[in-house]
Design a protein around this nucleic acid. Structure first.
Lengths: 113, 113
DNA sequence: GATACTTGTATCCAAAAGGATACTTAATAT
DNA sequence: ATATTAAGTATCCTTTTGGATACAAGTATC
């Protein structure tokens, strides 16, 4: 395998790693929701059309395991749970932006046909 | 629903649209493979570890339907099939790059723990 | 004439992702 | 005492994605 080919394989692996962490229908929307001010489970749930509790719960766990968000218990009366995007998670902006703008462009392209 | 909320919903939809078109484990790698010089079915197949014929075939169709690649029959002896990235497809660079570099960063992060 | 290569397709199956619905547990509000 | 809210979990099910393997049609090569 040439150096060139090796470099290509690494590129592929890096992209597949990313897709594993933030791929799928919901993960980026969830992060954006939290980022845009929704801290609590039901707030996040209500801000994202069609997501179910089960899916949201699972995705929150996945995101937490990957250090993108944190879950904290606020000792207030009554106690509540709050989610926040970590500073590491903020780095996803570099991906979310392109994904959003490409999606908009593509919709135009498809409609135009 | 406030204007702010409406804007947020559109953002989500745009991202979900993008994920539909280029999400999953293989689509970006396939495009990159073609872009980096592999034009023929078996070349593409061999350049991407672990992909199977069936999956490659399906993904090529999906990508073609979304105008990202074109399939052409080269009337030579023997006739062969060649794939190429369309100029529209080249626009994906703006997504592929961030996905790659984020993946690399993330691997470091995970290893560091 | 037999064999191999190319570009797939056909079948079948397994795993992952996503969805519907009901329920829980603790706390608080009426 | 009853109802409501919050933050999920539990079960069950459907759909999507991905994988293994075999095969096919056409051409070319031995």
């Amino acid at each position: 395998m040439t150096t060139e080919e090796k470099r290509f394989q690494e590129k592929i692996k890096a992209i597949q790693d990313t897709m594993f962490v933030i791929g799928g229908k919901w993960k980026i929307p969830i992060i954006l929701s939290i980022y845009s001010g929704n801290k609590r489970f039901n707030d996040i749930s209500n801000s994202i059309p069609k997501i179910t509790n089960r899916v949201l719960s699972k995705e929150l766990k996945h995101l937490e395991e990957n250090f993108l968000i944190i879950r904290s218990i606020v000792s207030d009366y009554p106690v509540r749970i709050e989610y926040a995007v970590t500073s590491y998670g903020l780095g996803l902006e570099e991906i979310a932006k392109p994904l959003e703008s490409w999606g908009k462009k593509h919709k135009q392209k498809i409609k135009g046909k």
